[in-house]
């Protein structure tokens, strides 16, 4: 009995410690945004009075509206196109089975584990030759057909009731109408979860935009934060304020749609 109590207490202590470590950098970030850079690198852990100055310094260095506009534009268009193209394919692979397409699908799964680093050089040459360098199209296009999301939708489509499709066919609906007017509304929660993963991925994407986007007016918020951090004498007050701003959208999505968020992350192993 005593042993059980001891183990229970140890569990709470361990979990509380882990939770504290998980949350601490968020507290650090929020407090840091209100402090001077010098205070931050010497570990000051209290609310400062430098928030407005940091904000003014950030505005002086970065066209915030433009940068956030770029990030949102890229993330939203990427998300819409990725969901459209990849859910169509996932649905197609699952509903219309044929031996050839099954082989194609298996081939795609092999490509799933190829790291982006292996693709970036030829992709860059391809994009340069197409004269799409420094455009949002170049950032968005290569990410639209996501094998991961195709796989996710194929798995989810297994739960789409065949009766619904049969009934729609009897009613004389064409296949694309069934997809648009029956499948799409039925699979709302699948789409919600996929939206979150794709949006997060696009919002946080760094390496590919770093390669493709060169001029300041095209930079996204992640590129700006990394440029600020790489400065010879980085101003951490400004940097932490920028990370707060960059993290807020995903943090809000997480707290509002926590269930779909976790569901989306889990999508692949169902």
């Amino acid at each position: 009995m005593n042993m059980a109590l001891l183990r229970r207490s140890a569990t709470y202590v361990l979990l509380s410690l882990a939770a504290f470590i998980s949350v601490f950098p968020f507290i650090w970030m929020a407090l840091g945004a209100t402090n001077k850079s010098n205070d931050i690198v010497t570990g000051r852990l209290s609310l400062g009075s430098n928030l407005l100055v940091n904000f003014q310094n950030l505005l002086a260095q970065v066209d915030l509206v433009r940068v956030f506009g770029n990030s949102f534009l890229i993330a939203i268009i990427s998300t819409l196109l990725t969901l459209a193209v990849s859910s169509l394919a996932g649905y197609g692979f699952e509903i219309f089975r044929s031996r050839v397409r099954e082989r194609v699908f298996q081939l795609l799964l092999l490509f799933l584990s190829i790291p982006f680093a292996a693709l970036m050089v030829p992709l860059f040459v391809l994009i340069s030759r197409a004269q799409l360098n420094n455009t949002f199209i170049a950032v968005i296009l290569p990410t639209i057909a996501s094998i991961f999301i195709i796989f996710y939708f194929r798995q989810a489509t297994k739960a789409f009731p065949g009766d619904l499709r049969d009934a729609a066919r009897v009613d004389g609906l064409k296949e694309w109408q069934i997809f648009l007017f029956v499948y799409l509304p039925t699979m709302r929660s699948t789409y919600a979860a996929a939206t979150i993963i794709v949006f997060m991925g696009a919002w946080n994407n760094y390496l590919w935009p770093l390669i493709v986007l060169q001029t300041p007016e095209n930079k996204t918020i992640t590129l700006v934060i990394s440029a600020l951090t790489a400065a010879y004498t980085p101003d951490y007050g400004v940097i932490l304020l920028a990370t707060v701003l960059a993290t807020l959208p995903t943090l809000i999505i997480f707290f509002v749609l926590q269930r779909q968020f976790v569901q989306g992350m889990l999508g692949a192993v169902k």
């Binding site: 193209v85 197609g92 397409r101 057909a145 997809f179």
Partner: peptide, 20 residues
């Protein structure tokens, strides 16, 4: 079957298989 998967396959062909 082909119509539904084709947009994705074309894009993957251009931006994944061709680069590799």
């Amino acid at each position: 079957g082909w119509a539904f998967v084709m947009p994705a396959l074309v894009l993957l062909g251009i931006f994944m298989i061709y680069p590799i």
